[in-house]
Design a protein around this nucleic acid. Structure first.
Lengths: 341, 341
DNA sequence: CTGTTAGCGCTTTCAA
DNA sequence: TTGAAAGCGCTAACAG
């Protein structure tokens, strides 16, 4: 048993490897009787061209690497779907890697993708300082950052308006009459974590509501932290009447905590979340959220990358900012409590 | 600008490429002063070994392909997490591909992975007949099927007890007093679709409940179909008092439909779903489900694959069947309706 | 311990 | 239209 090679095909078809290569790559200029014969032999041998060997001489792989921090956060698979779809259209193959929010794993993954000579990289980094990208930059491999920026390098970036969305969310709460508004924010060394907090702060400022430290809690964008922080808020002397959670998973954790400790949503406390989630429609009252166009995010990211990969010309840094949209349901206005029924 | 190669390193360090190779691959037997120098040069040049060239001579890539049908179904990312974790431990790199349930894309992806010379393949196929796997089998590349079987080839398989889980679910409904139990089943040409239906049927048989055609609807495991089928059930003259939905997404669709058409869960109709989902804890009453050990599924799959990749000896077909667990919440017993309060 | 050398499978001049 | 031949960057005998 041995994988058939181009040479096996050439021998059996009684032509040179060069001719077989021409056929495989549809370059034309081969007499059609010969082409016919070669195609038959390929079929017969079940020959599959070796992309490893090809990449070696061509020095391109038609492959892009995609690095995401959390495959179990439904946000990312949606973005990835958008990337994949566009990539497929252009004949690129996508290698998806998951860092699980670990900068170490991310570094390792980058190294591996570089070893495999990917033609481009789309990344939502676990470490925005970006030094792990040095080798990628050095090799002039096109990179696009999605959802989180890269601080120390000139990298094309696709984001949604985090500040904008957070501002809208907070303002919405304010306009419903809330004054005691807490935030469960994300890590402040991440773009989304920081910008969403800024949006929250600005809204408070604009409406002359003081920002209280005890209403600012910080999670890590995972469910558990939303759960814990909600409990902390509940244990406050002076509880907030509304909470803004800075991502989907923390919103979920918050909801679970509310149920657990009996802090009644829509009666004792309002909630608005950044990012939509399935659960939103099933809680009572339904949850108002800031929702983002995930697929478009992915599509835009690939399109940008594609330009860089093809027109080697452009080396200006570009920023795409897509707009979030607030989905108003009912969780932001407090009903009279049940005891009044 | 040109990527440094092993030769650049060798020249600058004044040694042969063979020696550099020894250092890179930690094979030992190199004088440590030389090794030191080489390491420094590697650092200086920011040299990264070219995995493409290496694979070419070694004929292994330390890479496995993972093909899943729907990256947006939370079930799969969880399985993938299990696979990745085990793979990382053993020094394998995972290439994740998404077919979006399309057999055509699957075939293409298999071809590409083969071209890239992956050392092994873990797949949840979109076409259980499995002819698309012929080239993989021909090349003696180890394959493990997860969650869905491959019909026409001897392939190691990791599944959960679909029949078992469905039987338990249906019996649970029966023991709550239900007699009119509908199923929204999956496609019958898929293992999970078929087996879960058999579990349902057996439970009815064992308890002498006739199986009615009008209570057997078929979806495609996507949300939309659960939604539509639920509406169909509701429009029946003689509505069922309980529904068993055969996967998470169809359960979600069913729940949305119930809300939409005002068919009251827990009062007018009971529901049990195959696979847990976030929403389960947030509907009222909370949803009883059959839950599966996703991470373990992935771990077991890689472990099996790893054995095949290393001990080339074994060529017996193995089946792992993990056990599902029923998570009893409250959605299966009907409360008196609100009007009686 | 170290260097020389022969490929791995393919593409791509170049010459015919 | 075709074939011969020179690599792509690396590893693995083999010889020293």
């Amino acid at each position: 048993m041995h994988k058939p090679t181009i040479e096996d095909v050439a021998k059996l078809a009684k032509v040179s490897t060069a001719t077989v290569s021409r056929v495989i790559n549809k370059q034309g200029g081969v007499k059609s009787s010969k082409e016919q014969r070669i195609l038959e032999v390929i079929e017969e041998l079940a020959y599959i061209p070796n992309a490893v060997a090809r990449s070696m001489v061509r020095k391109i792989t038609n492959t892009i690497g995609v690095i995401i921090p959390d495959i179990n956060n439904p946000f990312f698979p949606l973005v990835v779907s958008g990337i994949e779809q566009q990539a497929r259209k252009k004949g690129y193959f996508t290698i998806l890697c998951n860092t699980n929010e670990s900068p170490e794993i991310e570094e390792e993954l980058i190294q591996i993708l570089l070893e495999r000579s990917v033609d481009g990289l789309i990344i939502t980094t676990a470490n925005e300082y970006g030094h792990q990208l040095q080798p990628v930059i050095d090799r002039r491999i096109p990179v696009v950052a999605v959802d989180r920026q890269i601080r120390n390098y000139e990298v094309d970036t696709v984001l949604v308006g985090n500040m904008d969305g957070a501002y809208q969310a907070t303002r919405h709460l304010i306009l419903q009459g809330h004054k005691k508004i807490a935030i469960i924010r994300g890590p402040q060394n991440t773009t989304p974590g920081y910008e969403r907090f800024v949006g929250y702060r600005r809204a408070l400022e604009d409406y002359n509501i003081p920002l209280l430290d005890e209403y600012v809690l910080e999670g890590d964008f995972k469910e558990e932290s939303g759960y814990l922080d909600t409990q902390k808020l509940h244990s406050l002397q002076d509880r907030p009447t509304a909470i803004f959670t800075a991502n989907n998973l923390m919103t979920l954790g918050c909801l679970k905590a509310l149920t657990k400790i009996g802090w009644v949503l829509g009666e004792e406390v309002s909630l608005i979340g950044f990012d939509d989630l399935d659960v939103a429609e099933f809680v009572n009252p339904q949850l108002t959220v800031v929702s983002r166009p995930m697929r478009q995010l992915g599509e835009a990211a690939f399109d940008l990358l594609y330009e860089k990969m093809t027109h080697q010309g452009e080396w200006t840094k570009r920023h795409y900012v897509l707009s979030p949209k607030i989905k108003i349901r009912q969780s932001c206005v407090l009903r009279p409590s049940k005891t009044m029924e």
